[in-house]
Design a binder for these strands. Structure first.
Lengths: 185, 185
DNA sequence: TGGCTCATGTAATCTGTTACATGATTCT
DNA sequence: AGAATCATGTAACAGATTACATGAGCCA
């Protein structure tokens, strides 16, 4: 169970909320999931075809304003499959931060270059924090929220909490690096 | 530059600290880097062979107590390659947490199952936190620390900071989930 | 008219994991 | 004697990214 393709499950999960096209799945993921789960078209479209072959989704080809669209809908078996994965206790949580790798080997290049890596990391985080905070604020305003939005809110709060910890750590780390610099000068 | 194999760089980085065997590289990574960069023998040994072909490392085959060992040492070109990567500003930082994915789709299975996922996540974190804190404590005790250890300390502090944020978030999330449960009962 | 967004898809490639295979030594 | 650890490696497979390819509609 731990080894099945996760993309299957993510797509089924999104389709359990709403029927969508592959293009819309990508957009939805880029807004709601990208902070902890990324995806590209190169994995979405082939997965959708496979899911259809396995009868976990059905497709309807339409044409809106001349643009062809393939709208996918989750099936009963799809929901069963999704639920089985969701209830399974085995998970794989993975963090791969090249920034930390470059920091770890920082003695090779010294505090100045290393500090640059931390700066860029911090900037990226600080750029994304307002977006996450806005998400949280917007979700909290909704009265009588759909249950799905409540869970979405929890993941957004994770983002805020963690990103704020990142920023704190960045500040402390830059301070230490500047101390190192003084010592070695 | 952003797309070269990272395993090359990690191994070169470790060898820049000290000459080692593939087996030792794995052990070292499991202690110091596993919180933000994992690896398996299946990627370490082939990478070492490639690095040797490219003259970025040299190898010496020895025999210690009858056990064959291949000790790898970084070359001048290896150091140049490492430095080039370390100074390059492009990085890829990636977080893939299946736990968050299962939380995001929590409405499909309800607060009880979802809370279980958070519990297991929190337990794993709480199990690893003391290890990280011990690392930090030990590193901070060393007087006249080697520079490399200072950078190691900074990455360990990242772990502590972030894991503590995780635990806080877990507590808040479990509280919210228990509130949801009361509302829907 | 030109550029952006909508929309779908494939092929090459990369990178890594898992499981297997082997064999010696050390510890209990 | 048997289990764990030391030590090296391969083959099959999985999973995903990148770049490419195509084409239509919308906006300025």
């Amino acid at each position: 169970m731990a080894n099945e393709k996760k993309m299957d499950c993510v797509i089924l999960g999104l389709l359990s909320h709403e029927s969508m096209t592959g293009y819309e799945i990508k957009k939805r993921m880029d807004i709601t999931l990208k902070y902890f789960w990324g995806a590209s078209y190169g994995s979405i479209y082939p997965t959708l075809n496979q899911l259809e072959k396995d009868s976990l989704v059905t497709k309807v080809e339409t044409r809106e304003n001349g643009r062809e669209k393939i709208i996918y809908t989750i099936t009963k078996s799809g929901l069963v499959f999704l639920e089985k994965w969701l209830k399974d206790s085995s998970v794989k949580d993975e963090l791969r931060y090249e920034t930390l790798l470059k920091l770890f080997f920082g003695s090779q290049i010294g505090p100045d270059f290393t500090s640059g890596h931390i700066d860029r990391f911090e900037e990226k985080i600080k750029g994304e924090l307002p977006v996450l905070k806005m998400m949280v604020a917007q979700l909290e305003q909704i009265k009588g929220m759909e249950e799905a939005h409540l869970y979405y809110l929890l993941t957004a709060k994770f983002g805020v909490k963690v990103y704020e910890a990142y920023v704190e750590w960045c500040e402390e780390t830059k301070q230490t690096l500047s101390d190192i610099k003084k010592l070695t000068n």
